[in-house]
Design a protein around this nucleic acid. Structure first.
Length: 131
RNA sequence: CAAGUAAACCGGGUGACCGCCUCGAUUUAUUUCGGGGAGGAAAGUCCGAGCUCCACCGGGCAUGAUGCUGGGUAACACCCAGGAGGGGUGACCCUACGGAAAGUGCCACAGAAACAUACCGCCCCGAUGAAUAAUCGGGGCAAGGGUGAAAUGGUGAGGUAAGAGCUCACCAGCGGUCGGGUGACCGGCCGGCUGGGCAAACCCCAUCAGGAGCAAGACCGAAUAGAGGGACAAAGGGACGCCCGGCCUAUCCCCGGGUUGGUCGCUUGACCCUUCCGGUAACGGAAGGGCUAGAUAGAUGGUCACCGUCCUUCCUUUGGGAAGGGCACAGAACUCGGCUUACAGGUUUACUUGGCUC
RNA sequence: CGGGGUGUGGCGCAGUCUGGUUUAGCGCGCAGCGUUUGGGACGCUGAGGUCGGAGGUUCAAAUCCUCUCACCCCGA
């Protein structure tokens, strides 16, 4: 498998990790929203040269194990997905995300990012992780 | 072989590639190399401690907790051993298991009576009467009936007008005494025969508890607004409440404003493993060896292959093979000791009961 | 991390402190009947409850005790 180090992909932690509550609140209140059955995406331009990502999984989704797993899956998907720079993006898991596997969530995320115009390259409807 | 009891343990494995956190080297560099990276419950937060801060100490009250005995422990509501009671054919299991002659309170309905009692009754005497019938009056009794969850020792025999521990035997309970045991308690003998329940009702007795919590607390940095209001020196404050004594302190309360960034605390500890010694055991001691997660929107993940295991379907040379699907409960957040709750499947050891075979 | 609260017919609440005859009650809603030409309102009648769950104490538990589940609210 070829690692996809695109303009927006790769490292999900460090500088590209959305952490402060203020930043979260800003995206929540002023960002644009796209959604489907599993995921809600909120995004807001941040004026920087790279994009930052945050993940929200509420207690309604499941217990600590399930919530952690959903976050890890989302983080792995973002790592493998090249995205436009200059955005703060939050992924919010809905309760149905607890039952979804890696490929389902990946498809869902890429579809929403394509709608939002944040996806880089052609969307082929195929998971790059599943060869 | 079947059913069961108790205890201990595992709880998917191996490999490849791509990632995440962290430690140590290295580098101009989050560069490269090497090491480490969830659990038996990490959970619930129900107890107990360590640690930190609140200058501090003592006494009393209040409040709360514990509650058979002895031991273990830093401590405990935990653990071990023992006693008593209860359950099981048994291995074994369960128990909030101090005090009801310190006091107060409550026992609905039913019933005569739930604290002192006689409804239906039983018996004796007297009167009326033919009467050992019936009625009335006086007295005795608590066996039988009935009510109730519970009616004042139980069963049997003697005894009596009828009865009653009135007497006797056995059992239960109480008191005394002797013996055993550190003790809970057990055993023997003697005695008079002896009058409910509820303290998970108030309470009494014994023992133990100062408070707050790692967002504790320490340092660095950033930001803002206080002559705002009140209390006062025989006063006020001293980190749950009240009182007293000593001691300390110069401030304390209310309202309003700002910050909620970083580093430390943060993992070597009542730690783990092995052997030996003491102890019935919990546990303690000695020697040797080991270092075993430290995140902060919170690391431990993704994909693939093979194996293991279970289910379904199909094939079959009955040995097995193929395909598909599944593989529990659950995620460290200052650290330990427990408790409680959740948990697919599996392993080992000891023992019990029943059947069969030798 | 610490503290507090709630759970009772479909919904919102009493009753729990001080255990029992108060048939576990009230309002809204629901069903039927009456009234009306019909509907509403009104009147009458009725159905509907493992008192969140499991144990225990007691003669007796929604009520007392223990454990447990779910939800909610505070404080730092």
């Amino acid at each position: 498998m070829v690692p996809l180090i695109g303009p927006g992909g790769a490292a999900v932690r460090g500088e590209q990790h959305l952490t402060r509550k203020k930043e979260f609140d800003l995206v929540y209140n002023e960002g644009k929203t796209w959604a489907d059955r599993e995921i809600v995406v909120k995004a807001l331009p941040n004026g920087l040269e790279l994009s930052r990502y945050g993940f929200t999984v509420s207690r309604r989704v499941g217990n600590a194990v399930v919530r952690n797993r959903v976050k890890r899956l989302l983080r792995e998907i973002i790592r493998q997905t090249p995205l436009q720079p200059g955005w703060d993006i939050i992924f919010i898991a809905r309760t149905t995300a607890a039952e979804a596997d890696f490929n389902n969530l990946g498809e869902s995320v890429r579809k929403l990012l394509l709608q939002a115009g944040l996806f880089v390259g052609e969307y082929e409807g195929v998971s790059p992780g599943a060869n």
